[in-house]
């Protein structure tokens, strides 16, 4: 009896999901013709004029990015309902014996494990207390904030899948390598002493016990939350981008942020570290920078420094790390980001 009704509810949930997916696809497919019709036929802007093209660009890009954001955040939240910090801890605990493997796994789990930088401290303690090596723990703590869904979706929407994939790959690489280096340095003595003295018994996570209805509900409310928080940044960012498009000369930044300026990568990272912004606020700026002659590597390095090494997260981590380890952490990740920036400038 109980099974019947839950199967029925699942069918109902999947039916609603299917309808939503079709509606999403139709909206996405018809976006371009509809915005062109609105711009040139309803609002009577002239084709080919700068103003007309800017309006069309704005009217097309804003709903496109918001549609992509809603769809992707919904999907990744569904995926994340199958994971939890507790489960990740178990997975890592069993496989972190050999150097490297644990770091790779930790960085990848950093993408799919639900994570908020405000729980960085309990998560850190939970990981090291259960015997997960320090370096593996850091691989997780670096990957989780850097590779966030809003950043990836915006990069995909504004620059295409290649740049988005490149961003994910370099975020993973930085997390893995920085974690391995921190592990090799054997810095356990620079973790605050109270961490080692704690008795920690993890409570069982609740991730496995969810029904599909609950997963969909949680995904819907998370999507509402995140899109509600970032939509204004997206609109303003794209509006500024559309404006800069016409008024700033194309190569204005080429001298200071282009490939030829070797010092631009470290400077971009140094400026980026103390800055704190969410991905939604930073990416439209990055897109404007690139359009005006900044190179992709420099712009991506700046972005990673802003998102991955933020002052608030560093202050939170100070509660469990001694200043020396905090400095090593920022130094190693900062250098890794700088090298990635050079690498992109070299190959792109």
């Amino acid at each position: 009896m109980i099974e019947d009704s839950s199967a029925e509810r699942n069918t109902q949930t999947f039916f609603i999901l299917g309808l939503a997916a079709v509606a999403w696809y139709v909206a996405y497919a018809f976006l371009q013709p509809v915005t062109e019709y609105v711009t040139f036929d309803l609002l009577r802007f002239e084709r080919g004029t700068h103003l007309g093209e800017s309006v069309a660009f704005f009217l097309y890009d804003v709903p496109k990015i918001l549609l992509l954001l809603s769809g992707m955040i919904f999907i990744i939240t569904i995926v994340r309902t199958f994971f939890s910090a507790e489960r990740t801890r178990q997975l890592l605990g069993a496989r972190s014996e050999r150097v490297g493997i644990g770091n790779v796994l930790a960085a990848m789990l950093g993408i799919v494990t639900p994570f908020c930088s405000c729980s960085a401290v309990p998560l850190f303690i939970g990981f090291v207390e259960s015997g997960i090596p320090l370096g593996v723990t850091f691989s997780f703590l670096i990957a989780a904030p850097v590779i966030n869904e809003v950043a990836v979706v915006l990069l995909f929407g504004l620059f295409g899948w290649r740049v988005a994939a490149l961003y994910i790959a370099s975020g993973l690489t930085i997390a893995i390598i920085a974690g391995i280096i921190i592990g090799k340095l054997k810095l356990e003595r620079w973790v605050e002493d109270f961490v080692w003295q704690m008795q920690f018994q993890a409570a069982p996570g609740d991730a496995t016990a969810m029904t599909w209805e609950e997963r969909v509900q949680r995904a819907a409310s998370t999507t509402r939350d995140i899109v509600g928080k970032v939509w204004l940044y997206v609109v303003i960012g794209i509006a500024i981008g559309a404006g800069i498009h016409g008024y700033v000369p194309t190569d204005a930044l080429a001298d200071v942020m282009g490939k030829s300026a070797w010092w631009s990568v470290p400077v971009a990272v140094l400026i980026g570290i103390p800055l704190y912004s969410n991905a939604a606020g930073i990416i439209p700026i990055v897109s404007a920078l690139i359009e005006k002659g900044a190179s992709l590597g420099t712009a991506l390095a700046f972005m990673m420094a802003v998102i991955g090494l933020s002052l608030p997260e560093t202050i939170i981590l100070r509660r469990v790390l001694k200043p020396q380890l905090l400095a090593v952490f920022i130094g190693v990740v900062g250098i890794a980001i700088i090298l990635t920036g050079y690498l992109f400038n070299l190959v792109m």
């Binding site: 939890s84 507790e86 309990p122 704690m198 993890a202 409570a203 996570g205 609740d206 949680r218």
Partner: peptide
């Protein structure tokens, strides 16, 4: 933090009612 860890919680916010953990990480 020490108090939070006593309940075996790794992801906050969490809810404890009468010393029993009922929700975590959301």
């Amino acid at each position: 933090v020490k108090e939070i860890m006593r309940y075996g919680v790794m992801s906050t916010p969490a809810v404890v009612i009468n010393e029993k953990l009922v929700s975590s990480g959301r």
